[in-house]
Amino acid sequence: MARREYRGIEKKQARWGFAFVIPSMLFFSLFSFYPIINAFYTSFFDKRALSKAPPKFLGLGNYIRLFDPARAASELSFLNSLRATLVFTLGTFIPLLILSLLVAVFISNLGNNKAKKFFQIAYYSPAILSSVVAATIWMIIFDPRGLGNQWVNFLMHTPGIDHKWLVDPVMEQVSTMVIYFWKYIGYFVILFITGLATIPPTLYEAATIDGANKNQTFWRITLPLLKPTVVLVSVMAMLQCLKTFSTQYMLYTNGAPRAPINVITFNIYVTGIQQQYLGRASAMSVVLFVLMLVLTLLQFKTTNSEQTEY
């Protein structure tokens, strides 16, 4: 009897819970789940953007083509895109994680509230700039006659040297990393500042009474207690970097060569939108999805943090 009553309450609660969840589930299924299923399905077909003819079933044909070793030599191949994506992710995500943490600690430790707010806004503002504005700013900097060459040549006393920001393959990759870093560091700084605010000040007071210096406080209190935020930020930053597109698109449309910055998302865009091979582009997006899933799981596993308790 008692068991029946319990189930009744559970049912009632579940019904309400379900009612609250339905709108977001609908939204998710419409804008995320359906495109994922559709891309997965399309990846088995030779589907062209403009063709009205029924797409030809290829089975794993699109996937075999992506990983075909005979195509690996081409700088525009999918395998090169994998390389470009991993280089960009490693080159951006690690500095982004470390420096955003350091900047967040620096801002949190500022005594002056006005200065704190100023730095928070200053670091965050690039994140809300539109891609068009960001493109204009960086093209002014990276133009051979632009500010980039002027500043570097002034600092290094090397007048007249063109540092080929958008021409040299290595410099071009570095340029994309710099732009991305500039655009997103503020976002992660804010996340870290929020994480730092959750650490009870009493712990720092106790540490000060025990004679701990700032360095010890950081390594023994701040960092361990910030671990959940570090995991969150690292996963988010890594996923953001794997999905990078607008920076590479912006450089390409301004004349930079494609091969060094042909990351997977950019290859998907060129293959699906410019070249109209939707099936092939869908296969690429499925591979990217799997890659992101595996790396995220791996990251969760390796940084498996025990619950922080104060």
Partner: peptide, 21 residues
């Protein structure tokens, strides 16, 4: 109940695929 919820969730998730197929 659990089964019902799971089935309902799957139905919601698949709704767009039916709508836009």
């Amino acid at each position: 109940m659990k089964k019902m919820c799971v089935l309902a969730l799957i139905a919601v998730l698949l709704l767009p695929t039916l709508l836009f197929a």
